[in-house]
Computed example of a mutant assay.
Amino acid sequence: MMSVAYSVDVRRIDEFSAADLYDMLKLRVDVFVVEQHCAYPELDGNDKDCLHLRLLQDRELLACARLWRPTPAHHPRIGRVAVSPDHRGKRLGEALMREAISEVEKRHPGEPIEISAQSHLQKFYGSLGFEVISEEYLEDGIPHVDMLRRV
């Protein structure tokens, strides 16, 4: 596997240009709705409350993730982890998660990090320090487990 040079961009949704917002939302719909054959509300009303981390090469979007701040019910969370199909096989999923973990740790030191992971990705997330903390459940017709990365 080859790796790719990239820059990291983290911002709130209202800080995106229309073109950059379109690119990010299109990538998420392409991956989570079209590629995974899953009709569900990708635009779920939560993007305004999160930070959005993107990996870019020049101005091209390679990958993105959504970062939730902690709430009374949850530790900080990472979600909507997506790598462009045109850039898979270049270790970008791992790079994206490492950047997301670093950003969450910088903003919320001493906090564990939660994810809701598709079940078939348990080994991948486990390699990044996440442990399964729930039974398997269906989310939008896809098997998932909750995972936690302890401090």
Rank of each mutant, 00 (worst) to 15 (best):
D14A: 04
A19M: 14
P76C: 08
D14H: 15
E99P: 03
P70M: 06
Q118A: 13
P70E: 04
C50E: 04
R98I: 09
V145M: 00
V132H: 02
V31E: 01
R91C: 09
R149L: 08
V151W: 07
G89H: 13
L21N: 00
R59T: 11
E94P: 09
S102Y: 03
R69N: 04
L25Y: 11
A5I: 14
L21I: 11
D20Y: 08
L67N: 09
V8G: 03
A63P: 01
K26L: 13
P41Q: 08
M147H: 04
G79Y: 04
F32A: 03
L55T: 00
A117Y: 12
F16I: 13
C64W: 02
P76M: 01
G79T: 08
D49S: 14
K48P: 02
E35H: 10
I113N: 01
K48A: 15
G110P: 06
G93F: 11
E131R: 10
A65H: 07
L67V: 01
I133N: 03
E139T: 03
E139S: 14
L67K: 07
K90D: 02
V8K: 08
A82L: 05
D140K: 13
G126M: 06
A73L: 07
G93A: 15
I13P: 00
H144T: 14
V10G: 08
Y137E: 07
D140P: 15
Y137A: 08
L138N: 03
A18E: 01
E111Q: 13
V104A: 05
D20A: 09
D14K: 07
M24K: 09
C38M: 10
R11H: 11
R91L: 15
R11P: 01
C38H: 04
M147D: 00
D14W: 12
E131G: 09
G129V: 15
L25S: 01
A5F: 14
S84E: 06
C64R: 02
C64H: 01
P76Y: 01
E131Y: 02
K26E: 10
V4F: 11
R150V: 12
H87L: 06
D86R: 14
A18P: 02
L92V: 04
E103Q: 12
K26H: 12
V34I: 14
K123M: 13
H52C: 05
Y22F: 10
I113M: 08
L25M: 15
S127Y: 07
E114A: 07
I142P: 02
V145H: 00
G89T: 05
I133M: 04
L55G: 03
P112R: 05
E15T: 01
V34L: 06
C38I: 02
A19L: 15
E60C: 12
H108S: 07
V34Y: 07
V145W: 00
I101S: 00
D9C: 12
I78Q: 05
D86M: 06
D9K: 15
L148F: 05
D49V: 10
R88C: 12
K123A: 11
K106N: 05
S17D: 03
R107M: 13
K26T: 06
P41M: 12
E111G: 08
L92F: 08
H37P: 00
G89R: 05
H75W: 06
E99T: 03
I115E: 01
R66E: 01
V34N: 11
R98N: 03
C64P: 03
